[in-house]
Design a binder for these strands. Structure first.
Length: 652
RNA sequence: GGCGACGUAGCUCAGUUGGUUAGAGCGAACGGUUCAUACCCGUUAGGUCAUCAGUUCAAGUCUGAUCGUCGCUACCA
C-alpha cells in the first residue's frame, strides 16, 4: 500500500454550527486536499466533531433534547454544511464513536505503560450548581463563567507527564524547521514551552458525559486529551493494518488559537510518550476577523459561509453552486497566514465583482464570443503563443510550490494573475483589429486565449470546483482531471467547436447595495453614534486622563480594622489579612510582606476598597484591597486614618 | 506586572538578511479601446511607514522609550 497524503482539520465543538472561522480552516485544507488528489496522490482528508465536552450537556439541555440526539443532529448538520460547501473529506470522525473510544483507551494504556501517566490529587474550582470543573483561567472575577459560586475541590485523578517533554519537543522543533508554521507562531510555541510545561490532569469526575475510564466509570477523560487522539483514530490506528500509510499526517490545519497549548505541545508529547511519529507539519493560521458593516441579514458575529453564498446568489443572480465557489475563492485568496485578516461583507462583494465577475468571468465571456465571431466557433489550427506557454509553465511550478507550502492565498493569486495576463494579452493583440484583414496571427491569438482559459480552469479547480467545470462546459471540453494536463497544448484542441458564453458571475450593483445597506444599518449607526457621544461627553480630549466624579463615587472606600494578619503559606510577598469593614469581615491578601510584620498590623486601621470584585491569588480568595502609597523602592506604604475611627466609616 | 504580536495609501494587505525615487489589489480621477458582464487596457493622484529619541554612510526594517489595539500569563490589590 502506498503512502497516503493525510490532511486534517481540527474536530469542531458541537455547540454551534460552522461559522466563518471553522469554515476558513476547513476550506483551506480542502483546497490542499483537492490539489494533492489532482496531482495523483492518494489523500486521506479528515474532519469531524468533538462531542465529549461537558458544555454539550448544557447545550443539549437548552435545546430541550436528549444529549445523544442533540450531538447526532449537530454532527449531521456539520456534514451537510461541509458537503454544501464542497468539502471533500474522506473521513468524518466523531468522538462519540466506538472506534474513537477504543483509540483513546489504547493510547492511554500505552502512555501509562511507558511510565508517563501517574495518579495524583487534582485541585480546581468546582461549580456546584452546574457540576463543572473550571480551570483557573476559566474563572471570571472569581466566579464560574456563568456567574455561579465556585469552591475549591481536590480529588484523585490521572496526570500526564507533560513536563517530561519540554526538551524533546523543543529539539524536534529545532530539527524540523517546517514542523510549525508560520514562523511567528513557531516562536510563540517555543517561548511558551520555555516558560516550562506543567503536567496535565487528563481525567475528571464524570458528570454523565464523556469517555469513561475503562476501570473507573466515575471518571471521564479530559476532553482535549481525548479529542487529539481522533487524528490517529481516523488514520485507522491502532488496529487497522494500514494505519502507517496514513499516519503521520502531512499537514494538520488549525487556527492559531489551538496551536500553542494543545497541538504544538500536548499533542506531540502524547505521541512521543506513545512512541508514535509526529505529524510532518502543523499550520496555525490567523483569523478571519469580522469587521465593518453587514449587508446580509446575518446576525451577530457569526457569518455562516453557506448563508453568505445564499445571499450572494439572491442579489447577484449567480447560481448557488457558483456562489459557494465565490465564498470559497474569497476565503482562499484572503487566507490569513501570519496575521489576522479583516473580513467585511462589503469587501467580499467588491471582490466578487472585481475578481470573479469583471476579470475571470468576463474574460471567459469575451474569449468565447471572439471564437464565435472570428473563427466560426471553432478553435483554429494554429500555434499557441510561446509567451503563454512559458508563462503558464512558470505559474504551474509556483502554484504547486505554494499549495505544498500551504499558502493557498498565493496559489489563488497566481490563478488571478493568469486571468489578468490574458486580459492584457487580448488588449495588446486586439483580435478585432486583426479580424479586419486576413491574418494568421489572429488564429494563434484565439487558440492562445482558449489555452489560457483552460489553464485558469486548472488553477481554479481546487479552489472553486464548479467554476472550473463551468469553464470546461462552456468550452464544451472535458474537464481537467489531472495536474499533468495543465500547461499542455492538448487543452485547446484544434478544430473543436466551443459552446456559447453565459455569464457565470453576474455583476453586482454595489452602489444600489450600499443604499440598501445604509437603510438597514441606520439603527446600528444610531446606537453607535450614541455610544460615541457618551464616550465623548466623558472624555472630550481636553480632559484627557480625567474621570467624572460619578466614576469615583462607584468606588466604596471604608475604614477597616485589621483583626488578623498572618503569612500566606507558599507566598513570599502576600500577607493574609482579615479586615473588619463594619458590616462584614473580609479576607484580603496584600503584597506587603516585605515591609510589614503581621503581628504589628493587628488592630491597625486602614482604608479598604470594599466593593472590589473578589479575585483569587495564590489559590486564596481576596475580597478587597488596602490603599497604600508606593514608596521610592516600589514597596507599599499603608495609609491609616489620622485618628481612631469607627470601623466601617465611609471614606470620601 | 511579565512575555509576545500588531500599528505602512480612503479600504484590505505585501514589504526577504537595513541599501536608490516605500509596493499590490480594490476604490477615485483622467485617457484609450469595443470582442466582452458599463467590461478590459493604460496613466495619474494619494503615505511624516503610530510618536519620539538613538545606532549607522544608509532605518518601514535594528535598539530604547511613549501612545494605541490585541493575545497569553502572573504572588496585581
Amino acid at each position: 500500500m502506498s503512502k497516503k497524503y493525510t490532511i486534517t482539520t481540527p474536530i469542531y465543538y458541537v455547540n454551534s454550527v460552522p461559522h466563518i472561522g471553522t469554515a476558513t480552516t476547513t476550506l483551506l485544507s480542502d483546497v490542499q486536499a483537492r490539489f494533492q488528489r489532482l496531482t495523483g496522490k492518494e489523500v486521506h482528508f479528515m474532519t469531524g466533531t468533538d462531542e465529549n465536552a461537558i458544555k454539550v450537556l448544557e447545550a443539549a439541555e437548552k435545546a430541550g433534547k436528549p444529549t445523544l440526539e442533540f450531538v447526532d443532529n449537530i454532527a449531521d448538520d456539520f456534514q451537510k454544511i461541509w458537503k454544501e460547501f464542497k468539502i471533500s473529506f474522506d473521513d468524518f470522525i466523531r468522538t462519540t464513536e466506538p472506534r474513537h473510544h477504543k483509540g483513546v483507551y489504547r493510547l492511554f494504556n500505552i502512555i501509562k505503560e511507558n511510565g508517563y501517566i501517574y495518579q495524583d490529587k487534582y485541585e480546581g474550582w468546582y461549580d456546584v450548581s452546574s457540576e463543572t470543573f473550571y480551570k483557573e483561567s476559566d474563572l471570571v472575577d472569581g466566579k464560574s463563567p456563568d456567574g455561579n459560586e465556585v469552591r475549591w475541590v481536590s480529588e484523585e485523578n490521572w496526570f500526564f507527564k507533560l513536563s517530561a517533554f519540554e526538551q524533546p519537543i523543543l529539539d524536534h522543533i529545532k530539527k524540523n524547521p517546517d514542523f510549525i508554521v508560520p514562523e511567528n507562531r513557531k516562536n510563540e510555541v517555543i517561548s511558551f514551552i520555555n516558560q516550562g510545561l506543567r503536567d496535565v490532569c487528563i481525567t475528571r469526575k464524570s458528570q454523565g458525559w464523556g469517555i469513561q475510564l475503562e476501570d473507573d466509570s466515575a471518571k471521564v477523560f479530559y476532553v482535549w486529551f481525548d479529542a487529539l487522539i481522533n487524528y490517529l483514530v481516523s488514520c485507522g490506528w491502532p488496529d487497522s493494518a494500514d494505519w502507517t500509510d496514513k499516519w503521520p499526517a502531512a499537514t494538520q490545519w488549525m487556527g492559531k488559537d489551538i496551536l500553542t497549548r494543545f497541538h504544538a505541545t500536548m499533542w506531540p508529547a502524547m505521541l512521543m510518550a506513545a512512541k508514535l511519529p509526529l505529524p510532518k507539519q502543523m499550520i496555525g493560521h490567523g483569523w478571519l476577523l469580522i469587521g465593518g458593516e453587514k449587508i446580509s441579514k446575518s446576525k451577530g458575529n457569526v457569518v455562516a459561509p453557506v448563508e453568505l453564498a445564499k445571499y450572494l446568489s439572491e442579489v447577484s443572480g449567480c447560481s448557488y453552486l457558483l456562489a459557494i465557489d465565490a465564498v470559497r475563492y474569497y476565503m482562499a485568496i484572503c487566507m490569513p497566514f501570519e496575521n489576522d485578516v479583516v473580513f467585511t461583507e462589503e469587501d467580499f462583494f467588491a471582490r466578487y465583482n472585481s475578481d470573479l465577475a469583471n476579470d475571470i468571468g468576463n474574460v471567459l465571456n469575451r474569449t468565447l464570443t471572439m471564437v464565435h465571431k472570428f473563427s466560426e466557433g471553432t478553435i483554429p489550427d494554429a500555434k499557441i503563443d510561446a509567451e503563454a506557454i512559458d508563462y503558464i509553465s512558470n505559474c504551474k511550478k509556483e502554484y504547486q510550490h505554494h499549495i505544498d507550502n500551504s499558502r493557498i492565498d498565493l496559489a489563488a493569486k497566481i490563478m488571478l494573475n493568469c486571468s489578468r495576463w490574458l486580459n492584457k494579452y487580448i488588449d495588446t493583440k486586439a483580435p478585432w483589429a486583426l479580424a479586419k484583414e486576413v491574418s494568421i496571427e489572429l488564429n494563434a491569438v484565439l487558440r492562445t486565449m482558449v489555452y489560457m482559459l483552460r489553464n485558469i480552469e486548472g488553477f481554479i479547480l481546487s479552489i472553486a470546483p464548479d467554476t472550473a467545470s463551468i469553464i470546461a462546459k462552456q468550452l464544451k471540453l472535458d474537464a481537467i482531471k489531472n495536474w499533468n494536463e495543465v500547461g499542455t497544448e492538448a487543452l485547446a484542441p484544434i478544430n473543436h467547436t466551443v459552446g456559447s458564453p453565459e455569464p457565470m458571475f453576474p455583476r453586482l450593483d454595489l452602489k444600489e447595495m450600499k443604499k440598501n445597506l445604509k437603510e438597514s444599518s441606520k439603527e446600528d449607526k444610531k446606537i453607535e453614534k450614541q455610544n460615541k457621544k457618551d464616550v465623548k461627553k466623558e472624555d472630550d480630549g481636553s480632559n484627557a486622563g480625567l474621570i467624572d466624579i460619578k466614576h469615583f463615587a462607584e468606588v466604596k472606600l471604608r475604614i477597616g480594622t485589621i483583626e488578623l494578619a498572618e503569612d500566606l503559606e507558599g507566598s513570599d510577598k502576600l500577607l493574609r489579612l482579615e479586615v473588619n469593614v463594619g458590616d462584614a469581615k473580609k479576607q484580603i491578601l496584600a503584597g506587603i510582606k516585605n515591609k510589614y510584620n503581621p503581628e504589628a498590623l493587628i488592630g491597625k486601621q486602614v482604608v479598604v476598597v470594599a466593593n472590589l470584585k473578589p479575585a483569587k491569588l495564590r489559590g486564596h480568595l481576596s475580597e478587597g484591597m488596602l490603599l497604600a502609597a508606593t514608596d521610592k523602592d516600589g514597596s507599599a506604604v499603608l495609609i491609616h486614618p489620622a485618628k481612631e475611627m469607627e470601623t466601617g466609616s465611609e471614606v470620601r
